[in-house]
Design a binder for these strands. Structure first.
Lengths: 337, 337
DNA sequence: GGTTAGCACTCGACATCCCTAAGTGCTAAC
DNA sequence: GTTAGCACTTAGGGATGTCGAGTGCTAACC
């Protein structure tokens, strides 16, 4: 019983099962793939694979289906990520170019990825770490309420309303704005806290409370901001690909709604050398995703923000991984410098 | 055969069916509701109701279930919208107070509504019609690219990147900003186009192309902006309430993803005197929602923006309508002046 | 007239049984 | 290590039978 052939058999099982959605038997295997041996031999190999926990039989006399572990080995075996078809490349190109707003870009990207993979696509808002403060605006909304707008050079705009705790005249507010702006314009968002402290220190005591409130809000805006938000698309694909529900979509939808869960998951996924992280079935820390797999990767300058898809464990990993990686690259390029 | 009793029977059927998810028969009806007549009489009434197309029997010897028309009559019969339970009121109060950002408020609201009704909740971004321009900011991103930020007094911030078609020095841009700001600050967003035209007209020829580009972008921001976006929550409820899928959720998810479809639908729904619009099953213009109902209402100063829920036709209309209306009112109050 | 009891009738739901086809695991031969 | 052959297991599908819920009708009743 040769080890390489066993792997070949596993590969064949995964591919056939992903394609047919039905347990695959030894006979079908020798017919569809030219393995050069008889079905009996394959049966021996399959028995071995089952012993190793890589495949399993739903019932005594059915074919085998891959286990999570089997998919894992399969995925790890994929040496080179399959390149995209020219048509897909073109789709990516045309759909992503000519965008302006960050929201827009993310929205389009995630839709594209959903369509490309026929899965649910998820994208996390990019991190601001490298962004630089371009502008700050304070707008008085009510006697004590001020709208803060923070504009970063990447074209990102963050906003928040704060209660400054004291009434401010328009002039005072304007003066504060000027002071803050002078103090932090051009600094990296990550460095903001230090600079803000200096600005606050330089304020007149009368304005101190307001300055502190504003400074806090700015700081909060700078790092938390939208990084903990995500955009998703293609939920309908969940229902479509699961007409014969091996994946009960309820828990998956719940997971998707719990953005915290998803973001955590995406962040925790270890990226492998090929640049794409895959988490299969019960490898997922979240129970609702026990029958789902996540394929994700980082994008942007630091590859810290994530983009990925979520689908049933029975998915076409090579194609999906290729799509995720390609879209992430295009997205990085668009958002890049 | 008394007419009032027939309606009473319809009401009972709807209530029982919504509650039990099973076709309801004449006998069960007389047992659960004290109608004061025998099951045979009820049978006669039911036959009449069936003739009128208000109820239908899934098969010869099963109980009856309401048709879309039956639900419609039932809903129209509800004279007063049932008030919320104190617990629900409290939930609304506590969850919606102390919010700052518009995005935040909408996000929380829609989650609340989804939780309250156990359905999918949808909220459209509010219209800007009454808003007034508070501030304008132009930020140079690249030689010809300018980020426009439009801040309205409601605390709403809109942004967009435009290609101004010519290179502008920082000074020129700053001058343009000042001119635009002077020209439009304090004007209602709906009036923006007129004022913009005047500003453009007053620009030096050299700056004209840029001014035109900026003006166009501002105008676009002012009316289109985000009104055509919506936030949704509770998709998982779709799966939960439909374990025995009378509602195939695929098409519904598709409809929800096609925001255009949903927004159109919400806008087209006629609001009735009770302040809540209901669209039942095939009344919906979109085929995918043939087995779904939408309960919606307007909110905000003009009640032009919509908030509502979407669920299976078999839903608890009175409670749902009450929840939608209550949440809409609270939301209006929060966003109000 | 509207209401009621009684009763025959209809069908879906469910259980049972049987058969078939697919696919395995084992053994013995190569 | 590979193969052919064969006994064995079992899900799935179809046919059949039974049960019970629920109807529609008719004839009696108030």
């Amino acid at each position: 019983m040769s080890e390489p052939r066993k792997l070949e058999v596993l590969r064949a099982i995964v591919e056939d099962y992903v394609h047919s959605r039905e347990p695959v038997g030894s006979k079908a295997l020798v017919e569809r793939h030219h393995l050069g041996v008889s079905s009996a031999t394959i049966r021996n190999d399959m028995a071995a694979l089952e012993d190793e926990g890589l495949i399993t039989a739903p019932h005594t006399s059915a074919g085998r289906i891959p286990t999570d572990k089997g998919y894992r080995l399969f995925v790890d075996q994929i040496s080179a990520v399959k390149p995209l078809s020219p048509a897909e490349r073109r789709a990516i190109q045309s759909l992503l170019e000519g965008s302006d707003d960050l929201d827009d870009v993310l929205e389009r990207t995630v839709r594209l990825l959903a369509q490309l993979t026929n899965q649910v696509a998820v994208v996390q808002y990019p991190h601001l770490s490298r962004a630089v403060v371009r502008h700050i605006e304070f707008v008085q909304l009510a006697p004590r309420k001020v709208l803060i707008v923070l504009i970063a050079d990447s074209g990102k705009v963050e906003q928040r309303v704060v209660d400054v705790g004291q009434e401010l005249s328009d002039d005072t507010l304007s003066a504060l704005r000027t002071r803050f702006l002078a103090g932090v314009a051009g600094t990296a968002l990550t460095m903001l806290p230090q600079y803000l402290a200096a600005v606050v220190a330089g304020c007149a005591p009368a304005e101190r409370p307001a300055a502190v409130a504003l400074s806090r809000a700015l700081e909060a805006l700078s790092h938390s901001s939208r990084e903990d938000r995500m955009v998703l698309a293609g939920t309908a694909n969940l229902a479509r690909s699961n007409v014969d529900f091996p994946l009960s979509i309820g828990p998956v939808l719940e997971a998707l709604e719990e953005q915290v869960v998803m973001l955590r998951l995406l962040s925790d996924m270890a990226q492998d050398p090929r640049g794409v992280a895959v988490s299969i079935g019960r490898e997922n820390p979240y129970d609702g995703l026990a029958e789902a797999s996540v394929v994700a990767t980082g994008y942007g300058p630091d590859a810290t923000a994530k983009i990925g898809i979520l689908g049933p464990t029975r998915m076409d990993y090579p194609t999906t991984m290729a799509a995720v990686r390609a879209v992430a690259r295009y997205l990085s390029r668009i958002l890049g410098p």
